[in-house]
Computed example of a mutant assay.
Amino acid sequence: MATIKDIAKLAGVSISTASRALNDNPRISEATRTKVKQIAAELGYSPNYNAQTLTRGEANMVGLVFPVTDQSALANPFHIDLMRGAGVALEQRHYTMMVAIAETEERLLETVKSMVTQSKVHNFLLLYTKEKDPVTDYLRDAGMNFVVIGHPEKQGDRFVDNDNIQAGFLATQKLLDDHHCQHVAFVTSPHHWSFEVDRQLGCRQCLNERGLG
């Protein structure tokens, strides 16, 4: 089986240059990158991601952290869509997913800690935001790379805002216009998730615009 050393020898470059070329490092000229990649393809070279994990000290994985979830709870279609999209993006970068899901904050935190210390997962996507979240606090203090879905708890945290206020507004609008509901009730969980607060706000905005608030 071909190795990076074989590719470097045939390309007439150092092993480090060959490695950078295969990883599209902009410091390597386009001509060299093209040459190295062509040789790699001809040799049928396949990167050893396990070796890269040992070298970097971190795994080619991203941890997907679900909000605290009871075993009897129905699957959230939004989370499934997120996993599907994340999976497609990660596959293109030769990364895989590892999921953290638990019924309590304590068990969820222990799972995430195990992913960091034992599985060497250093990149995380949290499918929720919550004030005083122990998981977020741990990842922040440990210097891990993470992104949250929703409004970040602290300034400086990276996030993707999926606009739950607008989601609540549009859902209420649909109930009123398409299903002709006369009384709309907004039901929340006991966890007080930030996305529930935002969706309830959007619902109220819609009702107020219709004079039903």
Rank of each mutant, 00 (worst) to 15 (best):
M1H: 08
K5C: 03
I7T: 02
K9E: 06
A11Q: 05
V13L: 10
S14D: 09
S14G: 15
T17Y: 10
R20N: 08
R20F: 05
A21Q: 04
N25V: 00
P26C: 10
R27H: 08
I28G: 12
S29H: 03
S29V: 02
S29E: 04
A31W: 01
T32A: 14
K35M: 10
K35V: 00
V36N: 05
K37R: 14
A40L: 08
E42Y: 06
Y45K: 00
P47A: 07
P47V: 03
N48V: 00
N48T: 01
Y49M: 14
A51M: 02
T53D: 07
T53P: 07
G57M: 02
G57Y: 02
G57Q: 02
E58A: 10
E58V: 00
A59V: 02
A59S: 15
A59C: 13
M61I: 00
T69V: 06
Q71W: 09
A73P: 09
L74W: 05
L74F: 13
F78N: 13
F78Y: 15
D81Q: 15
D81G: 14
L82P: 06
M83L: 15
R84P: 03
R84W: 03
R84N: 13
G85I: 03
A86D: 05
Q92N: 07
M97H: 12
M97R: 04
M97E: 06
M98V: 14
A100W: 07
E105L: 11
E106H: 13
E106F: 10
R107Y: 06
L108A: 08
V112E: 13
K113P: 13
K113S: 12
T117K: 13
S119C: 12
K120N: 11
K120S: 09
N123P: 02
N123F: 02
L125Q: 04
L126I: 05
T129R: 10
T129G: 13
K130F: 08
E131D: 15
E131G: 05
E131A: 10
K132W: 09
D133Y: 08
V135T: 08
D137A: 10
D137K: 07
L139G: 09
R140A: 11
D141F: 05
D141S: 11
G143V: 02
M144E: 03
F146H: 03
V147S: 05
I149E: 04
E153P: 09
K154I: 00
Q155K: 08
G156V: 04
D157W: 11
D157L: 03
D161G: 08
N162Q: 07
D163E: 09
Q166N: 13
T172E: 09
H179W: 10
C181P: 04
V184N: 10
V184A: 14
A185Y: 09
A185L: 14
F186Y: 15
P190K: 01
D198P: 11
D198W: 03
R199H: 06
L201S: 09
G202P: 13
C203Y: 01
Q205E: 11
Q205W: 01
L207A: 04
E209P: 11
R210T: 00
G211W: 01
L212V: 00
G213K: 03
